[in-house]
Design a protein around this nucleic acid. Structure first.
Lengths: 229, 229, 229, 229
DNA sequence: CATGAATGAGGTTTCATTCAT
DNA sequence: AATGAATGAAACCTCATTCAT
């Protein structure tokens, strides 16, 4: 875990101190190097020596910022998760009409935009999930996100009140997978696969939707807003 | 890759030579040890030393049967794939009526039966997919299987002739995933997840099905048989 | 070695400068932390990081007060030696009658009192003796102390003038050892071992003693005083 | 701990197999290197890298013979202890008359002979005693040896039956120490120190001796023999 | 004077693989 | 064919120390 002192604090004068800026840059460089490595060689290749080499810092310096090798992986994942959550929240908040289809499509679009910007995402997401603690972290996050969707969709009246949260969790799992498949061979993402996947998800969710949830609910008629936690 | 000499060849006399039988047993022991290890400790723990220890053979002896560590993993996967393919073929061959639903359900049931017998499957399948060459192997196999399904289903008249093979490939991907989700926390497989997943796949495939493919075609009306390759 | 600036010097005004007082406190804190560490974890655990942590000063700050890690150990030992010498001097100065037995017993008692107050002593003494320079320092000190005893005892007429200084040095060595043995398992010191040891030393020294040295010489008949160096 | 297979076993033909001889030589080389290192630089310098360098084997090879760094230290100590015990037993077995003095002098002579042959002994003995498990091992060994002496001496009628075993333990401790002192500066051992030390021990033990134990008991009048365990 | 940050050097251990027999 | 022994390469991590501020 990145140590707290790296969180951007401002000195009394209001300027960031250069030392802190340098630290920040280094953490960035290290994480970028790690990401690059994971993406090109797989998670197994993420060794301290290699990361340090690519980040152009001495190995010992890694330990200034990260407790151990796992902490680097954690930070990598965390960074992605946070970024992803932000993108989804922003995308959903800007919708004017909420239907199962618009919500699903918008969410998928948010992922696609992220993938476009950072192709490392898929690799991180899929391979990171395997090792011990990380797996738990990602899974919990995904389930939390799915449950948030469930709460939002039922409260907003898109899904019937008795819709099982498990359904949404499954939809997240499956979306993960078709997205992975879509981006596996094609850095831009195979449009046909995405389209098929979205149809599958939308069709499935509409089984649990209210008629308003199918037709769409104007944003101003919804009391609850996404991500206003 | 298992070295060629292990493929069951018969000596001039027509009897297997005892040495070969011993070799065969050893390969089995090694692969079983490897599988046991992967399942209990994860793929990272599959080291030559450990495998040899559990198989009760000297480490150096591994190299009599396998070119290198990766070859052990490959053989492990290959063994599973072959076993899985056989199970699916047998299950489908015994159907009396072929519909999208019965074919999907039967296939999924075949997987479930295999998982029940060999819980190692999920681990092997999901974690093995990560490292380099293995990933390619599994993916190719899955695509070949999906394409075989496509050929079978269109030839048999279950799917419309213009159904995109890609649709079936996607269904395989997604089935993989909901099965993984179902078996992740529950060694017996979460029935609700499996049911949801099957419904999603069936509903999606029926979009591309003929009416006969939805209703079911008697086995004796189908010219082509599954697995008679 | 503690840097010179820490020797209590007075500024021109005759008052200690507050900065120096702070330094002094810090040195104390550092040494206490080091001692605590050595006693609880052994000498091997005396690392800069750990000492700094326990002393609650930044690691780099250690180097304001000590040239390097060894200097901390040296200071630790020095502090003990000085304290020990003071205790012995005080104890001996208060004797009213000087005989081989009273001197030995009093000296041993002084050690015991010190051990009682600072159980760290044994650890410091025995383990510290190993590394390079420290060993020499302690040995020299012990020999100087033994020689001082020799000078005192012969001048005072307790030992015969021709008694070999080597005998006293040996007695110091051996006392060290039986004390270590006595305190090894027993924080209070095993009385039986101490008693045996004292008897052994006294008996041995009396071989070289004058008859007055065995019987005891009143303090006011002795021209030389201990510790008036 | 050296693995069992290194114990000199003979093959069916009665010849040592060359492979085993080579292993044996390597273990010797490693232990000698370690010993040399400990003696010249102290125990702290006993690092795997350094030992391997001096033994002229790759670092990884150390782990063929020793489980870890500590195992090397253990083997070093064990080797010395075994050798020492043998020497003492041999020396005592050859005595024709047993008195407190002859037994003490003979034992000390055995130590001296060992020191002469292997000057590393003192260092090993004294410094090894500090780290964790080794300390316990040596101490226990010493106490066992002392108790064996006690049993032998009381059974043989040299010491009074009520002599406290603790007395002998203390004598061992102290002998250790005066020997250390004697050999500290002088590779041949300072004769005067040894002489003083022996006198001190003999004098002390004679306090607990029978008159026969002082005068000497002919070997053939003693039922029990040393080291015939 | 004080210190956060940086780092070269080294620590021990494991690994997959090869080779001599 | 079988294997005990050997090993280069790399793994992660810690340490005492210095330096720029």
């Amino acid at each position: 875990m990145v140590t707290a002192r790296l969180t951007p604090t401002r000195s009394a004068s209001g300027r960031r101190r250069p030392v802190q800026r340098r630290s920040r840059e280094r953490v960035e460089r290290i994480l970028s190097a790690a990401e690059q490595l994971v993406v090109s060689q797989g998670f197994g290749a993420l060794g301290t020596r290699e990361v340090a080499l690519r980040a152009d810092v001495p190995v010992a310096t890694l330990y200034q910022y990260f407790a151990d090798r796992d902490a680097i992986i954690s930070a990598l994942i965390e960074r992605h998760v946070t970024s992803m959550d932000g993108r989804i929240a922003a995308a959903l908040a800007s919708l004017t009409s909420y239907s199962v289809r618009t919500v699903v499509e918008t969410t998928v679009e948010a992922y696609r935009a992220a993938y476009l910007e950072r192709p490392s995402y898929v690799v991180l997401w899929f391979q990171g999930r395997l090792s011990a603690g990380i797996a738990a972290y990602i899974r919990e996050h995904d389930e939390r996100l799915a449950d948030e969707f469930h709460r939002f969709a039922t409260t907003a009246g898109m899904l019937r009140p008795d819709a099982d949260p498990l359904v949404l969790r499954l939809c997240f799992e499956i979306s993960d997978r078709f997205l992975e498949a879509a981006y596996r061979h094609d850095l831009g993402g195979d449009d046909r696969i995405v389209k098929e996947g979205v149809e599958m998800i939308v069709a499935h969710l509409e089984r649990y939707a209210t008629s308003a949830g199918v037709a769409g609910i104007p944003a101003d008629e919804i009391a609850i807003r996404w991500g206003v936690s």
